[in-house]
Design a protein around this nucleic acid. Structure first.
Length: 585
RNA sequence: GGACGGGUGGCCUAGUCUGGAUAUGGCAGCAGCCUCCUAAGCUGCAGGCCGGGGGUUCGAAUCCCCUCCCGUUCGCCA
């Protein structure tokens, strides 16, 4: 329960009492934030006007006369039909600062709920490196998971590895049959057609791309290769452990590279679940049997099985959701059903971070789960695709920016910045800080926009280190650290009579709202609230920092206490966004 | 064609679910601020028919209807 919640409760109670006393009844009313300076909570009186046959202004006037400031309410005044409340800033300051001082980095966190929440994110096909079109997924997913953890839930993050299907089989064939000479030639040719010289990156996910391309090309031209791949696929689907094993091995090699990339942006997943596992353990088969037995089931002339989802609101030319091919083998979505049943056996709440191309698939999945008698539904969190100014991202056409390249570029840019302004640091230290800043800039830039908004990737925006950016927040944190380092010893002082400046109150007010932000960002899956809050907090801190002398004078202890509290919350906001909180930069 | 999402100053963006007072910030532009805690900062100026049109309402960026533009999707692919 935050002080803001308490304040709202008191406001509602006092308005209710006043309404009852003046007019004999308590109609529904709302409390809201106000754009007016110095107003912390407002009650619009317009809705009362009709029933009471009085002007909103008069009602606000009468109510304000009835309400005596007490507790957290310091004043209640009427203005233009609104009843405006002001919070007692002394209590706000004292309560907030004391709470932050005593709780430290757990300030803003909620007590354990015992709820198990599973967040599946990233899950890109293990057939190539992660490009920035997909980078939204791990960043949103990881940030959401961290926020949910702060909300008190037991969070597990999970990557679903698609090691089944044509794509991975082609890749596997390429890894095992394409010669090093062919690979070298392919790399050269690719560079030539794109007109740029891509440097060879010594990472498995990048290296294997050439094998994959050669395999695709040869499959198109050579019938024998086509046959080999088709036969591998058939053996895979028949459950041949040898084929399944080699494909999985290839996927594992690829995944090593992907994991390395993810760890580069501070993303580590708790669990990797393999799609092939649901074939191996028979659970996909069980899904098939159960669906076949349902009243919605049907069979085409060829023998493919489907359920008709018309009555579930699924739209389209065809409302059939096919779950076996005519040869009886399962499809991706069938395995995904088994996977979701598995997830629900391990978690109370299941969240899938998905690209918007999965919308229909996700809807079909939910309907099928309903048919299977699943009581809970997965909650999808969709994000729109990232494109480049020249158009849609395509690995084949070379219209692509890899996440690894973005990270390198951003870190290099941060290194240049730090080199130009800090002559005193060692090379090693500069590299270390540049990494933190560069990665932070990327994560912030991605998570700051609402996921459903389409996103055009521009280098100058991705590498922006000013204003509404990751480094801006990190810089505010650095400033706080520096003051505290220079200050050395001081006694904490939460006496509100020493922190009465408008800028100080505004900063404290923001600090007091942190819990609400985490609740919205986590439980309501509105992850972009976090960077917005962080930016407001950093701005308030910077203003406070600029105006006041903090490390001397009669208010030294109180101001340093506020600096310490701001640093605590800034560091935690950064942490929730998977960004490092450097002590210098 | 249907379904779903987006459209907010030159560019990017918050607010839309749950209607409320002068629409949030940033970038770029202009003008200032480092004898004092890192100027990746701070202050000020300029810039808006909230895609367009109707409607509901005391009140609409927000709700309803129509319409335009952009994206995604409508596989016995994954």
């Amino acid at each position: 329960m935050s002080i803001a919640d308490d304040f709202e409760k008191e406001v509602r109670a006092s308005v209710s009492v006043a309404l009852k006393k003046l007019y004999g009844s308590v109609p529904e009313f709302v409390t809201e934030k106000s754009p007016v300076e110095g107003v912390d909570l407002a009650v619009p009186c317009f809705p009362f006007a009709k029933a009471l046959r009085k002007s909103p202004q008069a009602i606000a006037e009468e109510l304000s006369g009835e309400i005596v400031p007490s507790g957290l309410i310091s004043s209640a005044v009427s203005a233009g039909g609104f009843l405006n409340f002001r919070i007692d800033s002394a209590m706000l300051v004292k309560n907030t600062l004391e709470e932050i001082c005593s709780k430290g980095s757990s300030y803003g966190s909620f007590p354990p709920t015992g709820m198990r929440v599973n967040v599946e994110h990233t899950s890109t096909n293990p057939t190539g490196p992660i490009h920035v079109g997909r980078a939204r997924n791990p960043v949103i997913g990881d940030t959401l998971a961290r926020c949910l953890g702060k909300c008190g839930h037991e969070v597990t993050t999970e990557y679903y590895v698609n090691d089944v299907g044509k794509q991975v089989v082609i890749l596997t064939w390429g890894v095992n049959n394409v010669t090093p000479e062919e690979v070298a030639e392919e790399i050269e040719e690719h560079a030539r057609t794109l007109g740029k010289n891509e440097k060879e990156r010594d990472k498995t996910d990048h290296r294997l791309v050439a094998n994959y391309r050669v395999a695709n090309k040869r499959m198109e031209k050579e019938p024998e290769v086509q046959n080999e791949i088709t036969s591998m696929l058939r053996r895979f689907e028949a459950g041949d452990p040898e084929v399944i094993g080699t494909v999985r091995h290839t996927a594992e090699i690829m995944l090593d590279g992907l994991r390395e990339t993810l760890s580069g942006i501070n993303v580590a997943l708790d669990r990797y679940t393999w799609e092939s596992g649901f074939i191996a353990d028979g659970s996909a088969r069980k899904v098939v049997e159960k669906l076949k037995a349902s009243e919605y089931a049907g069979k085409t002339d060829d023998g493919a099985c489907y359920v008709d989802l018309k009555s579930f609101g699924v739209q389209g030319k065809n409302t059939r959701f096919t779950f076996t091919r005519s040869d009886g083998t399962t499809l991706y979505t069938t395995r995904d059903l088994a996977y979701h049943l598995d997830k629900f056996s391990r978690a109370d709440r299941v969240i899938d971070v998905l690209g918007e191309d999965q919308k229909l698939g996700s809807k079909q999945l939910c309907s099928a789960l309903e048919i299977l008698g699943c009581e809970k539904m997965p909650e999808p969190l969709f994000y729109a695709f990232v494109s480049l100014p020249e158009g849609k991202m395509s690995t084949r056409k070379g219209v692509v920016v890899y996440l690894d390249d973005l990270i390198d570029e951003s870190v290099a840019r941060a290194y240049e910045e730090i080199k130009s302004r800090r002559k005193d640091l060692s090379e090693e230290k500069m590299r270390e800080i540049a990494r933190k800043i560069g990665v932070g800039a990327i994560r912030y830039n991605i998570v700051r926009v609402q996921p459903e908004k389409q996103f055009v990737f521009k280098w100058e925006e991705a590498l922006n280190f000013d204003g509404n950016s990751g480094p801006y927040l990190q810089y505010a944190h650095v400033r706080a650290c520096n003051i505290l380092k220079k200050a050395g010893e001081f006694t904490r002082d939460t006496d509100p009579s020493k922190l009465t400046d408008e800028l100080e109150i505004r900063l404290v007010k923001l600090l007091s709202e942190y819990g609400d932000v985490l609740r919205t960002a986590g439980n309501e899956k509105k992850v972009h609230m976090l960077p917005a809050y962080g930016h407001d907090l950093a701005t308030a801190f910077n203003q406070f920092y600029t105006i006041n002398v903090l490390n001397s004078g009669e208010f030294r202890n109180a101001r340093l206490t506020l600096v310490e509290c701001a640093r605590t919350v800034l560091a935690d906001v950064l942490n929730c966004m998977g960004m490092d909180a450097p002590e210098e930069m």
